[in-house]
Design a binder for these strands. Sequence first.
DNA 1: TGCGACACATATCG
DNA 2: ACGATATGTGTCGC
Length: 306
Amino acid sequence: MLSQQVKVENLLESASKKVAPRSSDLYRVGPQFSQTNHHQQIYCHSTGMDVLPSLHARIDRGFEVGDEGTWIGYKRNYFTLVASFSLDGFEFQRFLQNRFYTYEKSKTSGEHKVDISYFAIRLVAKCSDDEVNISLVQHTPKRDKGPQFPPPIYPAVPGDLPDHGTVKVSSNKRNTTKLDNLNKIFYFDRGEYYRNTNLVKDDSILKSYPSDMVPRVARFERIQFTSSIRMRTTSANNRFFTLHVELLGIVEDEDSHIQPILLSSIESPPLVIRGRSPSNYHKDKTSGYRAMDDISSQHLQQMGPP
DNA sequence: TGCGACACATATCG
DNA sequence: ACGATATGTGTCGC
């Protein structure tokens, strides 16, 4: 209708203007991640068969595609990423009834068999030149008024990635009814599971997870590259960064210290991070970096019935 | 030149 | 409907 038409036109106009800080338009699907790379094999405890994991991740905020198909983020702005994993042939119930092990590279001799206490998902960034790790930081909703953390490592059970719209509506919710519903999507409640199944003795991997609310999906929100990253090698040459999502097996070493083992990973294509230089702002970004049909479909979805 | 701190503005949440 | 909140970005000053 008319109001729709007006909104679409406003959006098109805004493509070359400042972006409002709470605009839901800031939620955009980012670049696709690679296929899963495998670093250490996983074995099923009961059968001894090896198990193939798959990682899934999506960027939901903070990156836009530039003129040459390069993906661009802003150093000063947040990005959001969700990640989950699955084990090939292990639907959820079967996963819950098993334990898994892998092999740890020992300092002295060869490899050592180790039990996986639980799986976990980690987000790391690298500079694509060298393989040097670049630190990421996470803010609370209070931003400057609150503390900064490294992004958490999420203990996780297998799960499906929620779609983009779900991640978008999940942001900044405090309403308990809404939170309860979102928690059902993002977490598995071990306590509830034990109550419902009347389980007394549990020899599965589930028992060794560190808490009752176990993420099905690792949700990284309010993430930024550390303020000290250098984004250019020379004044003309951008550096590229990549985001990596890692599946970890958390094991206990000889001294029963907890230790992560990298099992598999996926990575983003090269990303350009624009810094604070004024040349990166006020720019006329009209060269079609927003697809027209994308805009209209998003708004039809968002506005709903009269 | 780039960074920490603070400021302003504005859509969303409850 | 309206106050509080979250967050892109403008700016000052080192």
